[in-house]
Nucleic acid binder design. Structure first.
Length: 409
RNA sequence: GGGGGGAUACCCAAGUGGUCAACGGGAGCAGACUGUAAAUCUGUUGGCACUGCCUGCGGAGGUUCAAAUCCUUCUCCCCCCA
């Protein structure tokens, strides 16, 4: 559909939202060659199979890949099942736990099930890097390692920092960038995409491709989407993420919790709202002609619409307003089944009821919540942590502002 | 191979014989407020049917009326020299 764009227009389209392209000139040349030779470019993305849920952060990169596909190019997703067993140090100051083969397989399958939400399946190839890395002999590994130097590897600021902080760096971790770079050699990648945290690894791919007599891949880095906490990058392990398969209500509510300052970044990286429209919103926010909540609602609706649909987005908005603005009960409440056996004379200690509902992790925890005034049964605040209650079937237990359950005896 | 330093709760980190379930910060949770699960302020954050008891400062032993703190030993980590 966008095949008739000229090269400059294609570059401009690709540039949108990127953090860095190394280099644009090379990218233009590659696009030119692809056009004249009628050969789709191979766009590589390495996926780390530790996180089975695709979230908005990864979606930023996947959406960019989709643009390449719309321009006629081929996407190759590399499931880093081999490298995952090594543990990528990127972004973490600690050695990552190594995954078992089963976990890796399971996670990889989940990815394969999920990426089609964003990508064009017909133009996507999925490969496992164990296919070639597993086959290498120790001599092969040493020859490959000889293509770079210790000084070069230690340039990576993560390693430098850890060295300075006196943290440990496993020998195997030094090999990680080399593995990832070698993937590019094997696939003869034209472009490798990643978050800005992948810069070093992707550049290593360029070095190795040159060493193996190939034209180096273009490096295309996307900004890291900041997570819901407004501080750390969005990641599964930090729990500050929105999964693209989450139900509309969850997705909407999570998006409403991002700090206000993050709104425009989210618009830019996670929605299809045109850039000039986003600028208008920013201006209106700045001169207070538009309420921040309205803007955030729009953001949440836009994103829910992408992964579900407009109706779901509006329903989620109505639900959110009902629960959080009007303090009403949510539409469908989870149920807690209390076996009759745990009642004595029809009574149960409030702390145990809360534990059964999963709202308190211990009875001490439950006591604290009661003392802090966070617990209500059928709308009445409970103040005595030792209280025994005799809930009727269908009674509503509420802990805090957003945990509700219907008690079933 | 030699020498030195370190391991404390979800994370960072203070404490070097009793007043320690353990300062402080981050993060989480709750309350108030609101525009919302933003921001801000306050409280809270081992367990137990709890005015008390139990477990606990890398593991295992020991000294002592009393140990996160002292001793022995083990494990892991870091630094310097080679």
């Amino acid at each position: 559909m966008q095949a008739e764009l000229n090269i400059d227009e294609q570059v401009a389209l690709i540039r949108r939202g990127t953090a860095e392209i190394i280099s644009e000139v090379e990218l233009a040349q590659k696009l030119e060659t692809a056009k004249t030779q009628q050969r789709p470019l191979r766009i590589k993305l390495g996926l780390d199979p530790t996180a089975p849920d695709i979230h908005l952060g990864i979606a930023v990169v996947l959406r960019k890949l989709r643009q390449f596909q719309d321009l006629g190019h081929q996407v190759i997703l590399i499931i880093g099942n081999f490298t995952a067993t090594i543990g990528d140090p990127s972004g973490k100051s600690k050695t990552r736990p190594q995954l078992t083969e089963e976990e890796v397989q399971h996670n990889a399958k989940t990815y394969a099930d999920q990426y089609c939400m964003i990508l064009d399946e017909a133009k996507t190839r999925v490969v496992f890097n164990s296919e070639w890395l597993d086959e290498m002999s120790f001599a092969d590994v040493i020859r490959l390692s000889a293509q770079t130097t210790v000084a070069r590897i230690l340039e990576r600021d993560d390693f430098t920092n850890r060295l300075q902080d006196g943290a440990s760096i496993g020998m195997h971790e030094l090999l990680y960038p080399i593995c990832q770079g070698y993937d590019s050699v094997i696939l003869e990648a034209d472009v490798e995409m990643g978050g800005t945290d992948q810069k070093f690894n992707i550049l290593m791919g360029r070095d190795l491709q040159r060493a193996y007599g190939q034209e180096p891949q273009v490096t295309l880095l996307m900004p890291l989407l900041v997570g819901l906490d407004g501080i750390e990058k969005m990641s599964k392990s930090l729990g500050n993420y929105v999964g693209i398969y989450e139900p509309p209500n969850e997705m909407y509510a999570k998006l409403m919790s991002i700090p206000d300052e993050l709104m425009s970044t989210y618009f830019e990286l996670a929605t299809d709202v045109p850039l000039d429209e986003i600028r208008t919103l920013e201006t209106q926010l700045a001169n207070r002609s538009l309420h921040p909540k309205r803007v955030k609602q729009r953001l949440a609706r836009e994103i829910v619409t992408i992964y579900h649909n407009a109706d779901a987005a509006h329903a989620a908005e109505a639900e959110f307003d009902r629960v959080h603005r009007d303090r009403q009960l949510p539409d469908d409440l989870p149920e807690v089944i209390i076996p009759a056996a745990s009642l004595t004379d029809g009574k149960i200690w409030i702390a145990h009821l809360m534990q059964q509902a999963g709202f308190a992790k211990s009875s001490s925890d439950a006591r604290r919540l009661v003392q802090q005034g966070g617990v209500r049964l059928d709308g009445d605040r409970i103040t005595d942590p030792g209280l025994e209650v005799s809930p009727q079937g269908g009674a509503i237990l509420q802990v805090g502002k957003r945990r509700f359950a219907k008690v079933i005896i």
